[in-house]
């Protein structure tokens, strides 16, 4: 699984990085985003909803996004 390390970066940087990186994984694959910014917990799922991507959940600072399209 590809990992995108955004630790220490404030929002919206993790969401911008996620938007740039998701096209680099194959459709159906999962990208793991590491972020310790408190806003990421709201903004990563919200971005997935707005972009029609699949939010797979979080485990601490690790967020999983599946590329749906």
């Amino acid at each position: 699984m590809k990992v995108l390390d955004c630790l220490g970066k404030p929002c919206p940087v993790p969401v911008i990085e996620l938007a740039k990186a998701l096209p680099t994984v194959a459709v159906g694959e999962v990208l793991e985003v590491l972020s310790d910014d408190p806003a990421a917990a709201a903004d990563i799922p919200a971005w997935c909803r707005m972009r029609g991507q699949t939010y797979e959940g979080a485990d601490g600072p690790s967020y999983r996004v599946r590329r749906a399209s």
Partner: peptide, 24 residues
């Protein structure tokens, strides 16, 4: 209501509860 504008550096609990974007 974005986190970077709050004294606690946490996003608005209202926006979080609604599940909407908190930045910008």
């Amino acid at each position: 209501g974005s986190s970077c504008t709050s004294s606690t550096l946490t996003p608005s609990h209202v926006l979080v509860a609604m599940g909407v974007l908190t930045h910008g």
